[in-house]
């Protein structure tokens, strides 16, 4: 495999705020055409890892290669789906406007948004089952619909590598299913997605391979090999019980109804 075909390669990555390391000597490769889950407890540095990959936070040391080059060079090939809370949902824009933003990078400076772009955005919205809500102001969306909007925005970016920060957090079951289907379609089209995920229940179901992260990589590899109870304990600490996790997941799903 040549470096240029490896979507994401992280070497020796360390990020520290003040004196506290957030992630520590993180090292892993992602193979193309895979759905990769990043699993770890709160405060394990999952979001920081994604942000450090995209130079959104300063790295203390280490190297990140995206398709064999630095992120700046291959920026167009990366789609980022941030956490829902990262934006102001009172902002005066419509759903379609938000999705169209995914095309801005390709448009470049000064060029206005044209009809064809809006149509592409509309098509992406239909793929995530939100075609009818295109004109709606974003504050009127439910949590699941907000997440679908972000997903549609990632879809129009037509990237080869997607970095998603907790797309499944507090969404309804239908949205979760829709997102999973889209992810599988992406995989079928040869794209790679690196997804931060919380619900240990569904990991084996959704992902081809996982990175277990707790400040450092505890284990990485095919889900069937790596996603073991023993490794989970090493990631989540001795106190983890799957039962606890499962009840927590259930509670979350109930709340999102």
């Amino acid at each position: 495999m040549t470096p240029a075909t490896i979507p994401l390669s992280v070497q020796d990555l360390t990020v520290a705020w003040h004196r506290k390391p957030v992630i520590w000597d993180v090292q892993f490769d992602v193979a193309p055409g895979q759905l990769v889950g990043i699993i770890g407890p709160n405060g394990a540095g999952k979001s920081t890892l994604l942000k450090a990959i995209m130079d959104l936070v300063p790295r203390t040391s280490g190297r990140v290669e995206i398709f064999g080059g630095p992120w700046k060079q291959n920026r167009q090939r990366v789609g980022y789906v941030p956490q829902r809370e990262s934006v102001d949902w009172d902002f005066p824009v419509s759903v379609l406007d938000v999705v169209t933003m995914g095309l801005y990078g390709r448009l470049g400076w000064f060029r206005p948004v044209r009809k064809q772009h809006r149509e592409a955005a509309q098509r992406a919205l239909e793929r995530v089952g939100m075609g009818a809500l295109a004109g709606r102001q974003i504050s009127q969306l439910s949590g699941g619909q907000q997440q679908r909007t972000f997903l549609a925005r990632a879809l129009v970016q037509d990237a080869d590598l997607y970095l998603m920060d907790e797309p499944f957090a507090a969404v309804d079951a239908a949205t979760e299913q829709a997102i999973v289907e889209i992810l599988r379609e992406m995989r079928a089209a040869g794209k790679t997605a690196v997804v931060i995920h919380h619900d240990l229940h569904t990991v084996a179901d959704y992902f081809d391979s996982v990175v277990l992260l707790n400040m450092r990589v505890v284990a990485q590899g095919a889900t069937s090999d790596v996603f073991t109870r023993e490794n989970l304990e090493r990631t989540y600490g001795g106190r983890l019980t799957l039962l606890e996790e499962a009840t927590e997941a259930m509670r979350r799903r109930e709340r999102s109804l």
Binding site: P82, S86, V87, M101, G105
Partner: peptide, 15 residues
């Protein structure tokens, strides 16, 4: 618009 709504996205898209 994009840099006001989502500065992170704006930066990753090159603005």
């Amino acid at each position: 618009l994009i840099s006001s709504f989502d500065p992170g996205l704006a930066t990753t898209e090159g603005f």
